[in-house]
Write a protein that binds this DNA or RNA. Structure first.
Lengths: 201, 201
DNA sequence: GATATAATATTAACACTGTAAAGTTAGATA
DNA sequence: TATCTAACTTTACAGTGTTAATATTATATC
């Protein structure tokens, strides 16, 4: 009598299908250019079916962003263990963060800029994936502070300074692609290097 | 025969009226929550009248943002002359930039995040106000570099690093108001201080 | 002052949006 | 076979950006 289980599985499958379709459309054409009808079309269901799986369009966006955060977290955690120098590990994490943002620019903007607009004060609350990402950063930083590699400063602030730098350069590179930036990789490295040096000083 | 001039003046007045109404609504309720009809209502004209003054909604947004940039430029230029130490001047400019962003958070997001989404590769092209803002930064930085206050690095990159930092912290503070940030002023100062120290190192 | 002309504003309409409510259908249980 | 229930669709509503056609007004010319 596994019918119930099968049904639950099928339901979850459709949920995933919706998510996949939504992400693809959001990412390629922008959140505000995608209608529920377009998503529905893509998966060949009626538009209102989506509402059986997601409260509204913002909730759907929210779920897409959760996945992005999870994806980012996984990407970061793959680095974690194979580095003895904590400062070097932090540097690498910074690079990975920015690279992630540039590899999936629309996902990044959806998650860190657009979603906050639609659901205020979200994404970093206790137990959330967002918080886990920040915890990752906290750990990295904490290691550097403990080993006295940085000037005396509390871990929170230090982390926030670093986040500001990588968030800033990521968004600028995404949003102003035509600006005469310094060669991209060099700029990213310089931003991270400068910030880390500043934390030592 | 000043009728022509008067007419032109009246036309410009209505244009301004539209801009003022649009800004107020965009800023208070968000670009995507404001319809052309709502703007029209506010100024007591029919919705389509707006189209005699602006190509479309994105063009209207564009004009609002131009004003914001001008406003930012003026705010920055008021600082310019009364500072002998270029590094200190740069520090103050950074603070002013972030404060501007936090004082008009919706304007800031409209200008530096949302507008780029609607008209790609904009706002910093030659002769634009956006370019003038960046030129201001360039001058500040250039002074520091010339006086050998910073480590040897080209002016462009240095400016971009600084911009990344202030842009990043501004947006994080705007977008995640509920995150347990270090006390706001302290965070801003630390971001700027750290970046500048990093540029010296 | 009457009339033609140009500028300005409005009305009506189109195709599309998010989403609530009601209706339908297919499969499981009895 | 009859009933129940979960899944899905149809219909509908109020609102959207925007265009084309129309109406109104103010000016210039006679």
């Amino acid at each position: 009598m596994g019918t119930k289980e099968r049904r639950a599985r099928e339901k979850e499958q459709l949920r995933q299908q919706i998510l996949v379709a939504a992400r693809e459309l959001f990412v390629n054409e922008g959140y505000e250019n995608i209608s529920m009808r377009k998503i529905a079309n893509k998966i060949e269901y009626s538009p209102t079916t989506i509402y059986l799986y997601f409260r509204d369009k913002a909730d759907l966006l929210d779920s897409v962003c959760q996945e992005t955060l999870l994806n980012l977290l996984n990407t970061l955690e793959q680095l974690k263990r194979d580095e003895s120098d904590p400062v070097e590990a932090l540097r690498k994490s910074g690079r990975t963060y920015v690279e992630f943002g540039l590899k999936y620019p629309q996902d990044y903007k959806l998650t860190f800029v657009i979603r906050p607009q639609f659901q205020k004060g979200l994404g970093l609350e206790e137990g959330s994936v967002g918080e886990k990402v920040f915890n990752y950063l906290r750990e990295m930083v904490s290691e550097c502070v403990q080993q006295k590699r940085f000037r005396q400063m509390d871990v929170e602030t230090t982390g926030q300074v670093l986040w500001s730098a990588v968030h800033g350069v990521t968004l600028l590179l995404i949003d102003f692609p035509d600006f005469p930036w310094t060669e991209k990789d060099e700029l990213i490295d310089t931003v991270i290097h400068t910030t880390i040096e500043g934390l030592k000083a």
